[in-house]
């Protein structure tokens, strides 16, 4: 096992452990903060896979944006209602049912993974970084998608401002 693999398993371990924390902890706040380590681990995995830009974007968007939003939501609502938010326990039927379904899914996916003849594309090794390639593709091949996404975000932004102003 070389160093890179070691780092990969380290990040994978962080991701799995913290994701389990997200799912299994009863307090919503713990779940939210557990998500921090999941996002961080996934960013690390991207970095190991040479996708440096994606790794940074992962931290930027998920940790800096979405996670803060989630924490804000949980923090503000739990103080407003005055109840500690905990995720409810599931009944025994649900518990067994979901276990069976997940196990079946796992089996099915493993089966697929092992039997299907995957057609893998040639790995394109970009000279220095994925950054230049992403920039070029965004402004040439995917420029329409890029613009549509930008306009969508702008609409959401204006809408949010409008809703926030309504009170005044």
């Amino acid at each position: 096992m070389n160093t890179l693999e070691l780092v990969f398993y380290l990040f994978a371990f962080i991701v799995v452990l913290s994701a389990m924390g997200v799912v299994f902890s009863r307090k919503l706040m713990y779940s939210a903060f557990s998500l921090l380590f999941t996002f961080f681990g996934v960013a690390g995995l991207y970095a190991v896979l040479n996708a440096d830009f994606l790794a940074v974007v992962q931290i930027m968007i998920y940790v800096g944006g979405i996670l803060v939003l989630i924490i804000f939501g949980v923090m503000l609502t739990s103080k407003v209602t005055g109840v500690d938010i905990v995720s409810g326990g599931t009944g025994k039927t649900l518990y067994i049912g979901s276990t069976v379904v997940s196990a079946a899914m796992l089996f099915f996916l493993t089966y697929l993974y092992n039997t299907v003849n995957w057609h893998l594309p040639e790995v394109t090794k970009y000279s220095e970084t994925s950054l230049d390639a992403i920039g070029n593709l965004l402004l040439t091949k995917y420029v329409l998608t890029f613009l549509v996404a930008a306009i969508l975000l702008l609409i959401a932004f204006i809408g949010a401002a409008l809703i926030a102003r309504k009170g005044n």
Partner: peptide, 25 residues
């Protein structure tokens, strides 16, 4: 020597927000 150095510094500063929220809460 990251190729996305400037962006990286900007991204990791969001950890501070989480740390402060964590401590405050």
């Amino acid at each position: 020597d990251l190729n996305v150095g400037l962006f990286y510094v900007f991204a990791v500063s969001s950890f501070a927000v989480i740390g402060i929220l964590m401590g405050g809460w």
